[in-house]
Nucleic acid binder design. Sequence first.
RNA 1: GCGCCCGUAGCUCAGUCGGAUAGAGCAUCGGCCUUCUAAGCCGAGGGUCAGAGGUUCGAAUCCUCUCGGGCGCGCCA
Length: 584
Amino acid sequence: MKQHLTHLIEEALDSLVKQGLLSSSLASIQIEATKDHQHGDFACNIALMLAKSVKQKPQDFAAKIVAAMPASPYVEKIAIAGPGFINFFLSTQSVGEVVKRIHAERNQFGRCAIGRKKRVLVEFVSSNPTGPLHVGHGRHAAFGNIVCHLLDAIGFDVASEYYVNDAGRQIDILTVSVWLRYLNALGESVPFPANAYRGEYVVTIAETIKKEHNASFAVSSQSIFTDLPKDENEGGDKELYIDAVIERAKQLLGAKYQLLLDRGLASILADIENDLTEFGVTFDRWFSEREFIATGVVDALLQKLMLSGHTYELEGATWFRSTNFGDEKDRVLVRSNGVRTYFANDIAYHLSKFERGFDLAVDIFGADHHGYVERMRGAITASGIDSERLIYLLTQFVSLYRSGKPVSMSTRAGDFVTLRELRQEVGNDAARFFYVMRKVNQHIDFDLDLAKSQSNDNPIYYVQYAYARICSVLKQLEARGLQYNEENGLANLHCLEEIHERQLLNLLARYPETIVEAAVHYEPQILTQYLRDVAACFHAYYNAHSFLVEVVSVRDARLALVLALRQVLQNGFEILGIHARESM
RNA sequence: GCGCCCGUAGCUCAGUCGGAUAGAGCAUCGGCCUUCUAAGCCGAGGGUCAGAGGUUCGAAUCCUCUCGGGCGCGCCA
């Protein structure tokens, strides 16, 4: 419809050019849906934009445009209002057309092909496998998953990946944490390092290992702790101390150290994957940093960067001159001890994404990584790849509120809330909806009481209830022994003349552009907001009018409308990954 | 100190490409159930869009500065 109206304006402008009233019709014509129904269904601001160049009052020029416009079967009335807007009032018949379209396209309604099958890789969560996911990761999971669905809906070829950071020092810390808890479970009395992972899950893993392997990882407490530096609580450095414990563990366990490491890692990854799967979030690939390094392609990929002339040697280390790309200081790629940094491996990983044929790489990270973005983009540019192809989306933090008070989530105190606990408390649907209801770069105050409440205050119940109510109407139809005739409904759309019906029809027509808007900006909250609007419109309609009226033509037309709405709700829910419930 | 993000009603937040009188919900107050679910609807009050300049037909939206809040500034990951 927008296209049609744009075309009408174009013809009017062309005609004015021919009359010599306008020098050029080259203007970007903006047609927008009105906010207020008194302004008709669509409005155009073209007269306001061109008024200056033709040296006329916008209202006068608008009148000339309207006079030059060809007649259209869809347009019932055209009015000039306000400072010079041209308002289009459509016929009931043409507004109702959207219902036919929805009935024809079903679950395809709202999908389009503007992504042109371009390949996009979305990387998200990528949480270090050192413990269970917490509520912050949940936001990444929900957001990333929904961004994938949105991009798919507009015709991108989407793949998702979880980068498993299983090669670094923190895995060693996990391993000794598990080991010390294991020794504890065997009855050894061992001090627990200040910098080790203190969570209860470590104890659980240790106990499992004890059951599986008995005492095969046992050593005497004395052999571990002789001649170690002081830990933090003894006035020492916790970093130096934990590194010394790691070294000692490797010495004492030999080849068995790797066994222990693998066991702990596998256990945590399994937990993470299980948690995400239950949450409805799956990945096309779990990309292991360790395996990636083992293939040997990391050095080959980094060669691109090395050959760019943007790297140099200093004090035994290899540096990337990221200051050439706006970074505040240069960054180390290879440490003086010969070990590559996380950054170097990550550059190789990102280069591999483009090497593997992806046109676009979308990374979803926490806002605490923002300092990292610039140097990665620099490295990509230096390697000869257009950094426009790398998109970073940074999420802000999530705070939980219960009874109006913030829930303490200090990791140190061991009382941080896991994603699993949150899901169990409020349910997957509410968690997903609440996570993406806010702009990604805005802090979330997650109200647990609200997410659980079964009331109109709760947005997730509000939208699901709209769906359930429509289902309920259909059950009622059956209970009264009535039949719905779709063909008759679609033939009588001109009966939908109530103001609520007009508003609902216009909203339904906006669903496809809402999806495009949400997808291209990576903003799912545009969709959640739309669903809340459409639900509010429906509830008002429901309250104002009966659907199951005596007059068959009106009844069938109304049912055709609410069934179209049900389809749109279902399509939106599908993208959000929430359930369409038939009853509440 | 430097960099990034944020600041909209008492509270939590919408506000599309710069458009018409800045909108919802909660809370407060007042209505609506012989009815397809009242888990809902309708109405009232409530605003210096943090502040000051600028850009223009028009600014919550774009630019500059100031104030306030969050985050980041490792040969960690």
